[in-house]
């Protein structure tokens, strides 16, 4: 059974620490070249390979990532 995942990132509250980037098994998140209102290069998704495993959310110190998934 496979899952398709979606993450919602509260980019304004993301501090761009990047700890979520190396823990993503699907390599679907990176730090943006753009900055948010605080000047941080926030996390964003770069492809749609997300499986909704929530690894990124687990390690996010600021809890800015919400994770959703559905069976496909």
């Amino acid at each position: 059974m496979a899952f398709k995942g979606q993450i919602i990132i509260d980019t304004e509250h993301c501090k761009g620490c990047g700890v979520c980037v190396p823990v993503c098994p699907m390599k679907c998140i990176e730090l943006s070249k753009e900055v948010n209102g605080k000047g941080y290069n926030y996390t964003h998704t770069v492809n749609d390979s997300c499986i909704g495993c929530a690894s990124c959310a687990m390690v996010c110190p600021d809890g800015v990532i919400s994770v959703y998934k559905k069976k496909i």
């Binding site: 979606q6 110190p61 994770v67 559905k70």
Partner: peptide
């Protein structure tokens, strides 16, 4: 979609002052 994870309401909306990461 079903919700897998979202920030708990037991945390307030205040932005934590801790350094990134």
């Amino acid at each position: 979609y079903e919700e897998v994870y979202t920030r708990t309401k037991v945390l307030t909306d205040a932005v934590m002052h801790y350094c990134p990461g």
